[in-house]
């Protein structure tokens, strides 16, 4: 019986691996960018299943929510209609014209020159070969990093080892990661293009589904956050799920409150960085290193960091998806507000 189960799982592994490579090959080979993006989302979902098979449930959650979900929305959003500042339009006295993206006039890209394709194929084959060779020489008998982590586990303030690594042992990485997210939002907003004309409302069904799914997504986010202390889950997965709710709300045409919404969003974006730095100062205040918190205070500090980080991560992901800052004074900019 045991060998039969092993054999069936091995067959599943082969099917998943072949699907992964097949998706990668198809999305690279197609000339249709939209098709490539959809295949990438399929690739991400397959990847989440692979993480589950490898026992990396935390990573599976993050991959499904961020790798396939948010990244897919970002890449699809890059292909939607947007204004274009064009020479001809400027000559006719207009700053920019609307550039529709419909199947009929979507750009059809020709393949690159044959010389470049041959060079790319050679580079790809060489890289894949070297990686396969290196993989075959990875030592199979090593204890890994778990034994180094084990002594820190009892007083780290959480039971899920991945959460301990992210928020205690390697908290520096996570602090910088949150700063990277903040920097990406600032940079994306700084290079924003003018907003496209507001599309017509997407219909009653989406509005109804949004009213149901946004509270549910926030609830699931809170659940993932709370469970993350002891089981797979945590701030990043929770933040991504809540960001999905935010993107859905924006699609459904939910608007910010007339006053104060933009300021609150900006405050929420930087909150995690500030709180994390403040928690990091707990160590130096007691004569210990920066970001060093163990024992009694650790659990509370990790909880505070994770709650605020969830908020900031969700806002950051919605922020990069929107691609432009929320208007500070909605009264003046009128209909340009599409940050939900």
């Amino acid at each position: 019986m045991a060998t039969e189960v092993t054999g069936a799982l091995l067959a599943l592994d082969v099917v998943l691996a072949v699907s992964l490579v097949g998706c990668a090959a198809a999305l690279v080979a197609t000339a249709d960018v939209f098709k490539a993006t959809v295949l990438f989302i399929v690739f991400g979902v397959m990847m989440a299943l692979v993480w589950g098979r490898l026992g990396a449930v935390d990573v599976a959650l993050a991959e499904a929510a961020i790798g396939a979900g948010i990244t897919g929305a970002l890449l699809l959003g890059a292909q939607t209609a947007q204004p274009a500042r064009r020479r001809g339009a400027a000559a006719r006295g207009r700053e920019h014209t609307f550039q529709p993206a419909t199947p009929d006039d979507a750009p059809v890209y020709q393949p690159a020159r044959p010389s470049r394709r041959v060079a790319a194929a050679l580079a790809a084959a060489a890289v894949a070969g070297v990686v396969l060779l290196a993989l075959s020489r990875v030592p199979t008998r090593h204890p890994g990093l778990a034994p180094i982590l084990a002594p820190h586990m009892p007083d780290a303030g959480a039971e899920n080892p991945v959460t301990v690594v992210l928020l205690s042992v390697r908290a520096y990485d996570t602090l910088l990661e949150i700063v990277v997210l903040l920097a990406a939002v600032i940079a994306a907003w700084a290079s924003a293009v003018p907003a496209a004309p507001k599309p017509e409302p997407p219909g009653a069904l989406l509005a109804a589904a949004t009213r149901v799914m946004v509270p549910v997504a926030v609830l699931i986010g809170g659940y993932l956050l709370w469970r993350g202390a002891a089981a797979p889950g945590g701030a990043f997965q929770a933040g991504a799920v809540i960001a999905g709710a935010g993107i859905l709300a924006a699609f459904a045409g939910v608007e910010l409150p007339r006053r104060g919404g933009a300021g609150l969003i900006r405050a929420g974006l930087v909150a995690a960085t500030l709180v994390f730095l403040g928690a990091g100062a707990y160590g130096p205040a007691r004569g210990e290193p920066f970001l060093h918190y163990r024992g009694g205070a650790a659990e509370g500090l990790i909880l505070v960091i994770e709650v605020v980080a969830t908020l900031s991560i969700a806002l950051s992901l919605v922020g990069v998806f929107m691609g432009r800052p929320p208007p500070r004074t909605p009264e003046r900019t009128g209909g340009d507000d599409e940050f939900g």
């Binding site: 419909t102 199947p103 997407p202 219909g203 069904l205 989406l206 589904a209 149901v212 799914m213 549910v216």
Partner: peptide, 20 residues
């Protein structure tokens, strides 16, 4: 939840196709 989301997604895709 899968029922709700897939119904909505189906509706939106069909609607977008009709509008185009």
């Amino acid at each position: 939840f899968a029922l709700i989301t897939s119904t909505t997604a189906c509706h939106l895709i069909a609607r977008a196709a009709l509008q185009r």
